[in-house]
Design a binder for these strands. Sequence first.
DNA 1: TATTGACTTACAGTTAACTCTAAGGTCTAC
DNA 2: GTAGACCTTAGAGTTAACTGTAAGTCAATA
Lengths: 126, 126
Amino acid sequence: MGYSIKTISQKSGLSQYTLRYYEKEGVLPVVARDENGNRCFHDEDLELISLICCLKDTGMPIADIKQFISLSKEGHSSLPEQRRLLQEHKLHIDEKIKFFQTFAQKVEHKIAYFSSLEEQAKAESK
Amino acid sequence: MGYSIKTISQKSGLSQYTLRYYEKEGVLPVVARDENGNRCFHDEDLELISLICCLKDTGMPIADIKQFISLSKEGHSSLPEQRRLLQEHKLHIDEKIKFFQTFAQKVEHKIAYFSSLEEQAKAESK
DNA sequence: TATTGACTTACAGTTAACTCTAAGGTCTAC
DNA sequence: GTAGACCTTAGAGTTAACTGTAAGTCAATA
């Protein structure tokens, strides 16, 4: 009946410190507690944490994630706004992918250039 | 005969603060000076700055960029090592692209889910 | 000649995102 | 009944990467 912070830390890859920090900052919604006052995570929390990690790892600042999460507490009326935020972020990710692809090419060219310099140096040393 | 720090700031998109900071930290090699002691950038610098931005924007920490740049001062003998670092980073970028593509899909699914919830809410309110 | 503007330095301050410490509560096993 | 593992909080400290400030130099212009 619920997961400890240790378990969630292992499952999510976030440290216990980070999980507490996220809750305190409102990046995570307030987590349920057991009879001893210890955090008691559920599957929905884990799912939300997975989404949060996804947003974070694709470059969304935690202040923005916080805003997104605070909307999800407001129920149905905030669905369009939540969707809008995700769509905006999706554009961001797509841009980043293009950007990364361009830069992967650039780095590849640079690598080829270094290879050619090495060949040249080898030829000269003969 | 050389660009001022202001010009380079405009061309590179890095602030003057950042350019000075990069030079001080060894992220940029030492920049030439004019007769007044002012920085005097050249096209090679601009090219190198462009590579540095590329590495930075694809997630290389500036400590690593610094290491890469310090190698380029050592001439031909360090070419293979420079190439190795770039190749390693290229793998990193490729991984990130895959990761981002996966997450773009995940976010897209979430958007679709929100849309369906909105439809449902609309239907219920009728 | 005085002021304006662009530059210089050294160094202090800021921001985001953790990360750790200290002091303490609760449960289980020996 | 105490040792050890787990949890709690408040708040301090850390790290990377800037960003800003203060005090000063220099050259061109009103």
